[in-house]
Design a protein around this nucleic acid. Sequence first.
DNA 1: TTGTACGCGTTATCAG
DNA 2: CTGATAACGCGTACAA
Lengths: 347, 347
Amino acid sequence: MSNRITLKQIAKELNLSVSTVSKSLRNSREISTDTKNLVQAFAKFYNYKPNSIALNLRNRKSKTIGVIIPEITHYFFSNVIAGIDSEANKKGYRVVVSLSNESFDTEVVNIETLANGSVDGFILSVAKETLLNKDYHHFKETINQGMPIVMFDRITNEVACDKVIIDDKEGAKKAVNKLLNTGCKKIALVTTEDYVTVGSLRTKGYIEALEESNIAYDPNLVIKIQDQGLNKDEEITLLGQSIVKLLHQHRDIDAFFAVNELSAITVMKVVLDLGYKVPEDISIIAFTDGVLSKYSIPALTTVSQHAFEMGVASAKLLIDKIEEITNSEFHITQTMDATLIERQTTK
Amino acid sequence: MSNRITLKQIAKELNLSVSTVSKSLRNSREISTDTKNLVQAFAKFYNYKPNSIALNLRNRKSKTIGVIIPEITHYFFSNVIAGIDSEANKKGYRVVVSLSNESFDTEVVNIETLANGSVDGFILSVAKETLLNKDYHHFKETINQGMPIVMFDRITNEVACDKVIIDDKEGAKKAVNKLLNTGCKKIALVTTEDYVTVGSLRTKGYIEALEESNIAYDPNLVIKIQDQGLNKDEEITLLGQSIVKLLHQHRDIDAFFAVNELSAITVMKVVLDLGYKVPEDISIIAFTDGVLSKYSIPALTTVSQHAFEMGVASAKLLIDKIEEITNSEFHITQTMDATLIERQTTK
DNA sequence: TTGTACGCGTTATCAG
DNA sequence: CTGATAACGCGTACAA
């Protein structure tokens, strides 16, 4: 029920044609100064603003970026959004956010409802269920229809599009090497199931770092987080139990490397409860740059994911594609360095 | 550069008129079954989807909700968005998010660029700078132009619109009473400057609870968080120093009530560093339902803000106004109960 | 200097 | 049963 004034209304009031009004407002040289002044004053007075929907239709673009992420109440993702928002606004784009909640169906619906012209392109991180299903037809179709997609963090190589990731394997190696360099001998790993790309890459980094130091990789020191059909609280409880069990079986564990924040915090809680000192008895490093790590007591040493910068980079790539600054046939994968942030859970 | 098929193209291919195609796809009884089948099959094959921008223009609505919040990397706000998103999707609306970063100018720009038809209404939480300036003309103008606004959490009574808040005063009283009931005698307060509505209401609750228990309110026990011109880290460092100083001057403080999460975590860090035991020596309660509280060690007792539910409630109110289910002259303020979540920082 | 006509994609109305 | 026309709001090539 917006009662915003339109060109037509101005034209009528002023006894001019719509095009004269339009030209006047765009300061066309075709129009006499008198008319322009009149129209501009009138428009200003009535607070005229061009209707962006009409412009979108006319220009066949929306100047809007669709962002689809698994969940928003997660520091990493909300920080990526902040980065996207910042870069998008600079370039005159808006950001519409929709959440897949890790569900394949929701992801499909969201991408389809936004792909009808509402959006000029997508930035997204793939839902777990999609990764598990390995069904990427919705992405492929969207791309076939001429809509660019940029994937970040949770990506799949089965879809040809621009991607922004951090160097998960190298980041994991940095973490493990830090632990080794501070004297840790027996490092346990808390990771996800393999279908989560980032999880498996970090696991690889863990294994490689050990091997490069001539330490045999021991699968018994690895906990895989179970999350199928569980809510977050149950997931954490279960994880806690696994950690207790592991520490019971391997009393000489002196470090944990966790691929995400919450599992690291869970490790810390269990370890402190059991009476260990952190980092004197057990060191902990997590892959994350969330708030929990920063403000936990003791503060967690982490491998930073540079979420904000990933958002900025993704937005840049997407906008370049939208505006056809870069060739749409050619896809690049941008890898950001993962950096170690030393805090209090390592020696 | 989307190459999605349009009605016109289908019509041309099938040697029909655009209107026949349109009617066929909408299953009009006017069209012969044969034609309908043909058109529908063709459309399905080419994956026809109506262009939503054209529909928006025609229907003069966007089926989109604009959300403007101060920052997104904040569990409370991202959780509100999750609630809005959930309710909006149920009713067929999309959500566009933009961030004010606590800046007045950014808030004004964002609301103006979205009010040009991109959005059917707004859900927002007022930026600190705006609250400080007390300049609400952008909200008022938007409302005057027939665009409904729903404010949540950080609101102002100077703008006539629907509002969703939690019962800040009562929540604060619950917190303080909990502390009193568990034997605390000298309760310090960490709060914001008064211009932040929620902060001042929580302060009021603190004072009232004390008075109702016949305890004199002592302004010396109050720390006001300084954040003018500081970044978050500086703000926290400064706060930490104030807490140390306060504890030094008043050695018999046995509890802290903080109006937000980060300040409570800061309190806890300082208190633990100084060798106090929590909650044996000092109890802590914060106003929040963020992750820090849940996963801190010890876990923080909090007054929950029910962020997700606030999002849902705001979206319901806004959509009712947009669809003119509720009278647009009549504004309601919905107050949600604040509930105490007892964890480990209280006895 | 101003106005007319057209197109962006859709649907409702009315004519055939 | 099918099609032409108008309208949503805007900008622009072209005509006057």
